[in-house]
């Protein structure tokens, strides 16, 4: 099957919504007939910012692993020919537009749209279709299964799980996670607004400014940053003389590294 339609916001119509964690998830389809509801083989594209074409999705879980902010959850979609579960962008407002999922998806079923661009060119012809009662029953049975554990990564966490189970029994006061989340989000938003980004741009490192702290390496979703030893001065340790090098064949221009850099050594440049 082909990849997700790049212009689904303008060519497709809004047919239904599904409950997300915070905000409802918009479901798009070519027309009212090509959406059959959960349990059929016609599902359409789910989500606006994180648009996942459920008709293409094969549920290999790459996006769930790649997402740095844990947007995706699993949803059961029985009777679909491609797969019987799909990755749904349940926490769409958390998306930081890093396009990691877009990159890792083997069937190109995901399209990330910048929240700022939504609403400018979308069609106004909304076909709100009443959900059939029969489908509603099926929908109630679907359960969102959170699977944050990775496939290649196994680690003993028996005791940690025990502790978390004990803590989950009682509602304890939070200590400021909302503030932390919103501050991170604001900072990310500022970076997004300030820098050009996308497939046509690439991140470049200013070697004069780079202090070799490896922050960008940790933040990059695509393993496209390496630390290269430069041996700039004999007296500095091997670590000090390392500089980041961005590999252009894997860089997607997501600006996450520029977001992470403490010394603003990374800039976004247009590809030639």
């Amino acid at each position: 099957m082909a990849e997700i339609d790049k212009n689904f916001m303008t060519t497709y119509a809004k047919v239904a919504t599904h409950d997300g964690d915070d905000e409802p998830i918009q479901i798009w389809a070519k027309d009212a007939d090509s959406y059959g509801g959960v349990g059929t083989d016609k599902l359409g594209i789910w989500g606006s910012v994180v648009g996942v074409d459920f008709d293409i999705c094969v549920a290999d879980g790459a996006c769930v692993d790649a997402c740095p902010v844990d947007v995706f959850d699993w949803i059961d979609t029985p009777n679909h020919p491609a797969s019987d579960k799909k990755a749904i962008g349940a926490r769409e407002p958390d998306c930081i537009v890093c396009r990691a999922c877009e990159e890792v998806c083997p069937v190109d079923a995901i399209l990330i749209t910048d929240p700022a661009d939504i609403g400018s060119g979308t069609t106004d012809t909304v076909i709100e279709k009443e959900e059939k009662p029969a489908e509603a029953v099926v929908e109630n049975q679907t359960k969102v299964v959170s699977e944050a554990t990775s496939l290649f990564f196994k680690k003993p966490n028996k005791w940690l799980t025990t502790a978390k189970n004990v803590l989950a029994k009682e509602e304890l006061p939070t200590t400021g996670i909302e503030k932390a989340k919103s501050m991170f989000k604001n900072l990310r938003k500022m970076t997004l607004d300030a820098l050009p980004r996308g497939k046509n741009y690439i991140a470049l490192v200013d070697n004069e400014k780079c202090i070799g702290c490896t922050q960008c390496v940790y933040f990059c979703n695509f393993a496209s940053i390496d630390m290269i030893s430069w041996d700039l001065k004999a007296r500095t340790s091997q670590f000090e003389s390392k500089k980041a090098l961005i590999l252009d064949d894997t860089c997607t221009g997501c600006t996450l590294c520029a977001f992470a850099c403490p010394v603003e050594a990374i800039t976004m440049e247009a590809r030639v």
Partner: peptide, 22 residues
């Protein structure tokens, strides 16, 4: 430019830099 080319360039640069440093 792939990674190998970049590494080679860097090595050249390093040798040059080292002789200058000396």
């Amino acid at each position: 430019m792939n990674e190998d080319d970049a590494v080679e360039m860097i090595y050249e640069h390093q040798e040059e830099q080292q002789s200058l440093d000396t």
